[in-house]
C-alpha cells in the first residue's frame, strides 16, 4: 500500500521547480496506510520559512483524494531533518533540467569554497563564481559562469 501511495506522490511536483517531484526532492519522510483508503503522510520542510510547504501539503491531500483515499492526514514534522543529500539521483537530474545547478553531496560541513566551485548547468564549466548565497527562493544561490558568460542559479547545499 505505501508503494502505491509513493507512486502517486511521485506525480506531485514542487510548485516552484516543476521538473522535480516531492519524492525526489526528499521531503516525504513517512508514508503509512493502516487500512485501505487511509493515508498518513509526513512531510518535512526544505527550509523552515519555505512558503511552498502549505501548498505542497494541499497538493498531496488533493492527489490522494482524487485517487480514492477518504481518510487523509498530511503532517509536517522535523523528525527527519531534510538536507540536500536526501535529493535522489533522478531529482538531481530534474533540477538541472530546470536550469538549476544541483547541490554537491556533502559530509555535513558546508563552506564558502564549496559554493564557489559550482559547475555551470549550461556548459558544465567550473570557471564560475558565486555572486550571492541568497536567490529568488530560499533554496537557491546566484552564480556567474565566466566560460559561457551566463548568470545561473544553483540549488544550494544544505546540511
Amino acid at each position: 500500500m505505501p508503494n502505491a501511495i509513493k507512486a502517486l506522490l511521485e506525480t506531485v511536483m514542487d510548485p516552484e521547480i516543476p521538473t522535480i517531484s516531492i519524492v525526489d526532492l526528499g521531503i516525504v519522510t513517512g508514508i503509512e496506510s493502516p487500512e485501505p483508503g487511509h493515508a498518513i503522510i509526513e512531510l518535512t520542510p526544505t527550509f523552515s520559512g519555505c512558503p511552498a510547504l502549505r501548498i505542497m501539503e494541499q497538493m498531496v491531500h488533493d492527489k490522494l483524494a482524487e485517487s480514492g483515499y477518504t481518510q487523509i492526514e498530511v503532517k509536517t514534522t522535523f523528525n527527519k531533518q531534510w538536507n540536500t543529500n536526501m535529493i535522489t539521483e533522478k531529482g538531481l537530474i530534474a533540477l538541472k533540467q530546470h536550469g538549476l545547478a544541483p547541490p554537491p553531496k556533502h559530509d555535513g560541513y558546508i563552506e564558502l569554497d564549496v559554493l564557489s566551485d559550482t559547475p555551470c548547468p549550461y556548459c558544465n564549466s567550473r570557471n564560475t563564481e558565486m555572486q550571492t548565497p541568497f536567490g529568488p527562493t530560499l533554496c537557491r544561490s546566484m552564480h556567474y559562469c565566466k566560460n559561457c558568460l551566463n548568470a545561473f542559479e544553483a540549488f544550494k547545499p544544505v546540511s
Partner: peptide, 13 residues
C-alpha cells in the same frame, strides 16, 4: 535579496 531571505528564514524558524 539577502536581508529579505534571512527575514523569511527567521520568521519561519
Amino acid at each position: 535579496i539577502a536581508f529579505s531571505s534571512m527575514a523569511q528564514d527567521k520568521v519561519g524558524q
